[in-house]
Design a protein around this nucleic acid. Sequence first.
DNA 1: GTCCAACCTGTATC
DNA 2: AGATACAGGTTGG
Length: 304
Amino acid sequence: MEFTIGLESPFSLEYTLESGQVFRWQNRGEWWYGVVSGGALKIKQEGDSLKCVTGSDSLDGAFVRSYFKLDVELEKVLSSIMKDETITLAVQTFYGLRLIRQERWECLASFVLATNSNIPRIKKMVQAVSARFGEPLQFEGIEYRAFPKPEILSEAPLSDLRACGLGYRAPFLKHVAASVEEGTVDFSELSLLDYEEARGTLVKGLLGEKLLPGVGPKVADCVLLYSFDKDEAFPIDVWIAREVVRSYPTLLDSSLRTKLAPEKRVKIGRRDYDRISSAVRSYFGPYAGYAQQYLFMMARSARS
DNA sequence: GTCCAACCTGTATC
DNA sequence: AGATACAGGTTGG
């Protein structure tokens, strides 16, 4: 199936797919190839239109619009977060970057794997898990693999998961898969909660019992921002922490400022995380997550 | 409640 | 070559 989508609001496919939200897209020539929601999809942007080719009937225009959240009026979102020169420059530099509405299970699993790692490595891990355990599918004569369902990974031998290069994350992934499969973590219930409650539930469980090992505040924020439409979520990794300390020192109180001084290794504890999080969320407002994504791109592009 | 080392492993750097 | 540091954190002491 082949179709074209007309864009009515700013969009950059490249920035969006390279912004570290998603790990299963790759650029080949003019096209981006991805496996989404159990089907293969390739996309090319030509100005204000999006050419799409897919092997799966469910990946239609409505799906693509929803996946990239093309209904979001990006200009309004961006003008609401452009509160100073730093974020304004970031927005101008990566104009058109959008948040993606990912599939929840895959998003959760991906970010459990993402801890203490980097983007190329995360892509390798997600790819290895898909290749080993995912359902095969054909597209343009090439075989792809869907991201494996929870029940597959919960029953996978730990040694097989470790063989995918997951390291200490292997038992976390298996356990999280089991919780999702059993329904002890219920995505549709979670989506009804507000941001704070949902984050607490992901990290600590509804009754305060830990049921998602490998899910701390950073992973929870990623999952909520990228797959639950919680636009105020502001995931804080080392890049963002450095950027906040560098460009927004006044948002932090003096003790935190000293502790995270630019020269020092940034290693933030739970308490620091919560303090930075509430500071930036009250500064940027309900679309703080967009600010995070633009600042993240800026921080990474500035690395040497 | 807060701090800290340990955790798998791939890659970069010396 | 072999060692070391570090990577989009989290856990358990």
